[in-house]
Amino acid sequence: MRARAGPSLTAGVGRILVALLASVLLLFIAFPLAALLLHTPPNTLWSSLQTQSATSALTLSLQTTTATLVLTLIFGTPTAYLLARSQFPGKRIVDSLVDLPIVVPPAVAGVALLLAFGRQGILGPTLNNMGIHLSFSTPAVVLAQLFVACPFYVRSARSGFLAVERTLEDASTTLGYGGWGTFRRITVPLAFPSLVSGAVLTWARALGEFGATIMFAGNLMGVTQTMPLAVYLSLESGDLDGAVALSVVLVLISLAVSLAVRLIHD
């Protein structure tokens, strides 16, 4: 009762203060984005996107993020299901291990990948003997993206699977479907919104990946230079229009992604 009768943060003087603080933050987010979107007139923007570095960055980003997404779905779906449905010793540790790449700084992730799969890394000589040279190659870009981005899908899919009532799976089993049929016909359709929003988030995170990629895969045009890396290089080399054009594309994609995730969850 007291909490209800007491002064609310959304009434009186408090209300004005709250509104003020919120407006400052919203402006702080909106202002730079507006600056970016308004900096270059659309036709300059369009011609800047026609340059070879821009088109190859766009193409490479599309290819690598698609590969990352496919790998995430293939390996992440069983992982998420296991985490949602099974009890095993050390499950909490596995749970936090899966979440770890989200909080580890991307540059650190890049160094870790280098030490594991790079030429001087632990698996380097073995991979070398098999004729596989990962570092500074397109597959390295995919590995960097996979490392930092897959947890978003696994987290979302795990909570999606958790929300599917177990008795529904049991019912499907008693009605005659085996594990795979039940998974395909009951579990996946019911967890679908979570799976899609997780996939969208993973893809968006992979698209924006910079730190781990530049550390592990380098910055070679057409090979490892994805859009964020091309933005960085353009800016460094004084091509502001080029940097802005690619940035605008990335901002528009991000906007679409956050709207899509919102729509899926409503």
């Binding site: 009532e165 008795t167 529904l168 049991d170 019912a171 499907s172 089993t173 008693t174 009605l175 005659g176 479907y177 085996g178 016909r185 009951i186 359709p189 019911l190």
Partner: peptide, 29 residues
């Protein structure tokens, strides 16, 4: 396995599949 016993179980709260229509639920087995 449960699906090969030819025994039907009506679950508590019925466990109907919410994403399928009534006829799809009934035809599931």
């Amino acid at each position: 396995s449960p699906g090969r016993r030819n025994i039907s179980l009506v679950f508590q709260e019925y466990a109907l599949f919410p994403h399928l229509s009534v006829e799809q639920n009934v035809g599931y087995g």
